[in-house]
């Protein structure tokens, strides 16, 4: 069929476009790649240098207080982290943690304002919704390509890909949370003469808090699930271990690293959920 309709050179166009973006915006990409990259790696290294037992105690205490003085999560954290230490994958854990910490932070910092914008404007909602759908349905691997193109390899492109992949839930939940605030409360705010920002910060965001937190929780979990994928472009950490185990068909090693990810996931998941429950 392509005899009379020549194949459209979409791939070429995209390449051209990317090249242009690369050079036109190098003043953004370069410092991100270099300074920000150094900063993240520095953080990860700094974290790995803290004595593991100190970290374990801090995490256990945090878990204890966040969970409303219940002991379960603390015990799980202690046992889980000791296991990771015992398996000699502590440093990898710290790199993975740093990766999702920054990825989630960036997602939230971008996502909540976007969600607010969406909740306030029909137009924003109409434009952003399909973009979010697109971001979520596109296979996560695809994000590795622009990540590599713009940021080379290492932690920064890993974080970039995570952010693209993990931001949609926090945007959606923020939008939903604000739109769900009961009409009477919005009217009460208006009737007392609030300005837009007053209404947002004193009524809508506090009312939407637990919905937004549910979105944050999902975002964190999604960025965690990007860890293995991001290791394909050189992000160090537990994901990298899984990947190399895969490449060398070392089932045992892969299982241990995978277990490490699961332990981290459970601790983070429960903690964010508890944070949401207590006021």
């Amino acid at each position: 069929m392509s005899d009379f309709l020549p194949k459209l050179p979409v791939a070429d166009w995209v390449d051209l476009f990317v090249e242009w973006v690369q050079s036109a915006f190098s003043f953004i990409f370069d410092p991100l790649k270099n300074e920000f990259g150094d900063f993240i790696e520095g953080t990860a290294e700094w974290l790995s240098e803290i004595p593991p037992f100190a970290v374990i105690i801090i995490v256990a205490l945090l878990a204890f207080f966040i969970s409303g003085k219940r002991i379960g999560l603390s015990i799980f954290s202690i046992v889980g982290l000791l296991f990771i230490l015992n398996q000699d994958i502590w440093e990898e854990l710290m790199f993975t943690f740093t990766l999702i910490l920054f990825a989630s932070l960036i997602s939230v910092v971008i996502g909540i304002p976007l969600g607010i914008l969406m909740s306030k404007s029909k137009w924003a909602q109409a434009i952003i919704t399909p973009i979010l759908d697109f971001m979520q349905t596109m296979p996560a691997f695809v994000y590795l390509i622009p990540a590599v193109v713009f940021f080379g390899i290492g932690m920064v492109p890993g974080i970039f890909a995570s952010v693209v992949f993990a931001t949609p839930p926090v945007v959606r939940f923020t939008n939903l949370g604000i739109r769900q605030v009961s009409n009477e409360l919005v009217e009460a705010a208006d009737a007392f003469g609030t300005t837009g920002p007053q209404k947002l910060f004193k009524v809508e965001l506090p009312m939407a808090r637990s919905t937004i937190m549910a979105g944050v929780n999902q975002t964190v979990m999604l960025s965690l699930s990007m860890v293995v994928i991001a290791s394909r472009i050189g992000a160090p950490g537990l994901g990298d271990l899984v990947l190399s185990a895969l490449q060398r068909a070392q089932g045992g090693q892969g299982f241990v690293a995978g277990l490490g990810i699961v332990i981290l996931a459970i601790i983070i998941d429960r903690m964010t959920q508890y944070l949401n429950r207590n006021k």
């Binding site: 009477e184 009460a188 009737a191 007392f192 506090p206």
Partner: peptide
């Protein structure tokens, strides 16, 4: 003007 609401319109938090 101040308003009082049917379902009270109080802020639960």
């Amino acid at each position: 003007l101040s308003m009082v609401f049917q379902k009270f319109g109080l802020f639960p938090f």
